[in-house]
Amino acid sequence: MPQLQSRSLRIHADALEYLDQTRLPQAESWERIDSLAAWQAAVKRLAIRGAPLIGLSAAFTLAHYAKAYPDADWQAASDALRATRPTAVNLMYCLDALEACFDAGADALWARALALFEEDRALCLAMAERGADLLRDGDRVLTHCNTGALATAGVGTAIGALAVAKSRGLKLHVYVDETRPLLQGGRLTAWEMADLGIDYQLICDSMAASLMAAGKVDKIMVGADRICANGDFANKVGTYMLAVLAHYHQVPFYVVAPYTTVDAACATGAEIPIEQRDGAEVRGVAGAFGEVNWAPTDAPVWNPAFDVTPAALVTGWVLDTGVFDAAAIGRGEHCP
């Protein structure tokens, strides 16, 4: 039996198992992490995804490595994990926490990883409660990418707020952006909405403008992979487009994330490193259902994994520590 379990992770004393998110919703397949390289491969192909989950899974991978190889260069191992996904600051937060325990030995790394897991559960619930406070019965909420239990150790971030609102008896209607090019909304968020019993409709990303123009969206809630000191934030590509549309149509736009996603050392969004991914993701699609290409195999592609949304387009930042405006984020009031 696992020592700890979330919707996407099973933590054993000697191993880590993850729910392969590339195979959802067609199949629930659990895979084992047995090396640093296996974790890196799973993260790069988005079998493990979601900023909090990436950080937590990296922490346990490093802790297992330290127990298995007590004489190895733990710093080099941590550096290798750190370089895998440069945008998500939660990865840096978790690895920083374990590196601080190096002098105390492998058991200290394991204990710290366990504490990070429990911390994320608590952070998720706190921010979800605050996000649910912003919702009203009958609200029509637009989401982007996937921000639920699949992406965290707990109830999730933005989807966590929807889940808590549902538990309070609020009736919501959720519009789920399919989220090109890897369809995390269509594959994962739609699956989670059905699992939670929340009324939803799946839409193509390009339909969001028409939806807002028709007055069918009351609020937008998204997650974040990194929030800068001034409130600019990086999230799955397509988020910036939604923020611009929300600003034009005067739809409240909220970012829901733990305080660990705020990078006080990153002044503005211009400093956030943006990962470029394989062009094959745009030329076609692949998954448990198979593979198909709809573009020339040599078509040049620009495929950033994330985009940056300026703080001026954000209505509020919903963190576990409170709901903040840009000025409060800049003053560091979000810190616990």
Rank of each mutant, 00 (worst) to 15 (best):
M1Y: 08
R7F: 13
L9Q: 07
A13P: 00
Y18I: 04
L24W: 01
A27Q: 14
E28T: 08
I33D: 00
S35W: 05
W39L: 11
K44A: 15
A51T: 08
I54V: 15
G55D: 07
G55W: 10
L56K: 09
S57K: 14
T61M: 02
H64Q: 02
Y65P: 01
K67T: 00
P70E: 01
A76T: 06
D79F: 03
R82F: 13
R82C: 11
T84P: 06
R85A: 09
T87Q: 02
M92V: 09
C101R: 15
A104M: 11
L116T: 04
D120N: 14
C124M: 05
A126Y: 06
M127F: 15
M127V: 11
R130W: 04
A132V: 10
L134T: 06
R140D: 00
T143E: 02
T143S: 02
A149P: 02
G154P: 12
V155I: 15
G160E: 06
A165T: 13
K171H: 15
H173L: 12
V174H: 09
T189I: 12
T189Y: 10
M193A: 11
L196Y: 12
I198N: 06
L202R: 04
S210C: 00
A213R: 14
K216W: 13
R226W: 03
C228D: 00
G231K: 01
F233K: 07
N235M: 05
V237E: 00
T239I: 13
Y240W: 15
M241K: 02
L242H: 06
Y248S: 13
P252K: 07
V255F: 02
C266W: 04
C266Q: 06
G269M: 02
I272F: 08
P273C: 11
Q276V: 04
R277T: 07
G279C: 09
A280E: 12
E281P: 02
V282H: 00
G287S: 05
E291S: 14
V292C: 11
W294V: 11
A295N: 07
P296E: 09
D298M: 08
P300Q: 11
V301A: 04
W302A: 10
V308E: 00
P310N: 14
L313P: 08
W317F: 15
L319P: 10
L319R: 03
G322D: 08
A327L: 13
G330E: 15
C335M: 14
